[in-house]
Nucleic acid binder design. Sequence first.
DNA 1: CGCCAGGTGGGAT
DNA 2: ATCCCACATGGC
Length: 252
Amino acid sequence: MQPQRIESPSTGARLPRLYEILLKAYGPQGWWPLPSRAGARGFDDRGYHPGDYRPPRSPAGRFEIIMGAVLTQNTAWKNAEMALRRLQGAGVRLPPDVLGRDRRRLAELIRSSGYFNQKERKLRGLARMFHAPGALSLSAPPARDLLLAAWGIGEETADSILLYAFGVSSFVVDAYTRRLLGRLGFLSGNELYGEIQRLFHDALPLRPGLFNEYHALIVEHAKTRCRVKPLCGGCPVRFCPSHPDRALETPA
DNA sequence: CGCCAGGTGGGAT
DNA sequence: ATCCCACATGGC
């Protein structure tokens, strides 16, 4: 018999715990924000709606999330939000609105989000997919494969669309998720997107409301504390190897 | 100023 | 498969 060893809790056991910690620390996040609804009943002045995990039922609401998912690629939400507001102001809300715009002018509307030439092409491609007869519908969740077949739609954007526009339990893995899980010691560093996603899918009940909140909480935590240069003071995640309290446990 | 932000596709190795 | 780069603006 080998000497008994205290095993650290598995990643699978810690992911649900991490969720509880983050939720307690930061509270419900109210994703996905809809700037077009800012100030409306149940929405704050930026379009967040804490406590309501239902995706929009309207095609315009869903397409706003789809456009936002593209506009925020490698870009601060603030910049994507400005672009979204300009699109709304110009009457671009649904696929035919996109398809009917001059390319040059559409790109100009979304300038603030960066990469605007590429993103214009991505919006146009998605608009065509959701507009063409017999193609994807805004009334029912699309197959992940079909979203991925669109130019400019990778795994993260596809999962954001599935989860936040359609309420499908597909966990969103972004740069923040990698950074946080890496620091927690859950990753070796070379994991593929799907491998990280599987950690969440295997460890949690497949509920869209839970996935919605969890990803949003990771973003909030990574933006405010677990930054590139981490601010570990007062961090709520006590089991993190980098947590200040750990230094006290180190033997002399 | 430089760094960073809710990635993705394409080409070289 | 895996690395490397282009794509671009705005906030801190």
